[in-house]
C-alpha cells in the first residue's frame, strides 16, 4: 500500500503528460497545463520549506556553539538581512540608491563574479594535472585542446592564418559529433528513465520493494 498509491499516481500522471505529445486538443491541454501549474506552485511553496530547513540545520548549531558556528551565524544574519532588504523599495528596487540595489551591486555582484572567476584558476590547475599524453587517445585530446586554446585567441591567428579554421573544424566536426552521440545516448536514457518511472519498474525513490 505504501508504494502502491504513489505508483498509481505516477502512472496516471505520467501517462497524461506523455499523452500531451500525442493529443493536441485544447481540452486535453487544459488538464496538462493545470498539472504543470500545480508543479510550479509546489516548487514555489517548497521555498518556504527550504527556508525552514536552512534554519533547522543552522540555528541549533549556532545555539549550541558547535564548532565553526560562526559561519552559520553569518549565514543566518545574511539571510535575514537580504530578506528584509528584498521587501524594501518595491518596484524601484533596481534603482540606484535603493538598499536592494546596493546589496546587489556591492555584495552579490562581486561575490558571484569572484566565484565564477575562480574557474580560470581551477581550469589552469586541473589542466596542468590532467593533461598528460600518456597514451594515444590522450595525445589526440591534448593536441586538440592546445590547438583550440591557442586558436580561439588572437595569438593563434598571428601564429597561423589557418589555425582559426582548424579550430572551427575541430569544434564543428569532431566535437559536434561527439556531443551528438552524447545527446542521443542521453536522450534515450532519459526516455527509458521516464518510462521506467511511469511504468513503476523503477521504485528506488519509494524505497524499493
Amino acid at each position: 500500500m505504501r508504494t502502491t498509491i504513489p505508483l498509481v499516481i505516477t502512472f496516471v500522471v505520467g501517462l497524461i503528460m506523455l499523452g500531451e505529445a500525442f493529443i493536441p486538443h485544447w481540452m486535453y491541454r487544459i488538464v496538462t497545463e493545470n498539472i504543470l501549474e500545480w508543479g510550479v506552485i509546489l516548487a514555489a511553496a517548497a521555498f518556504v520549506l527550504g527556508l525552514i530547513n536552512l534554519i533547522q540545520v543552522n540555528l541549533p548549531k549556532v545555539l549550541a556553539r558547535e564548532p565553526e558556528w560562526g559561519y552559520k551565524l553569518v549565514m543566518l544574519v545574511a539571510l535575514v538581512a537580504t530578506l528584509v532588504v528584498g521587501f524594501m523599495g518595491g518596484g524601484d528596487r533596481l534603482s540606484n540608491g535603493q538598499a536592494y540595489k546596493w546589496v546587489f551591486d556591492f555584495v552579490f555582484v562581486p561575490l558571484n563574479a569572484t566565484m565564477f572567476a575562480l574557474l580560470a584558476f581551477y581550469i589552469a590547475s586541473a589542466a596542468f594535472r590532467a593533461f598528460r599524453a600518456r597514451n594515444m587517445e590522450a595525445t589526440v585530446l591534448l593536441v586538440a585542446a592546445v590547438v583550440v586554446m591557442i586558436g580561439r585567441v588572437p595569438i593563434g591567428e598571428q601564429i597561423s592564418e589557418r589555425l582559426p579554421q582548424i579550430v572551427n573544424w575541430l569544434m564543428e566536426v569532431p566535437n559536434t559529433a561527439a556531443r551528438r552521440a552524447i545527446f542521443i545516448g542521453a536522450a534515450l536514457g532519459a526516455v527509458a528513465t521516464g518510462l521506467r518511472i511511469i511504468l513503476g519498474i523503477e521504485r528506488s525513490h519509494l524505497g524499493g520493494d
Partner: peptide
C-alpha cells in the same frame, strides 16, 4: 587580450607538465 595570455599560460603549463 587577457584571454590571450591566459590561454598561453595554460598551454605552457601543460607543455612543461608533459
Amino acid at each position: 587580450n587577457v584571454l590571450n595570455l591566459g590561454h598561453v599560460f595554460i598551454v605552457l603549463l601543460i607543455f612543461l607538465g608533459n
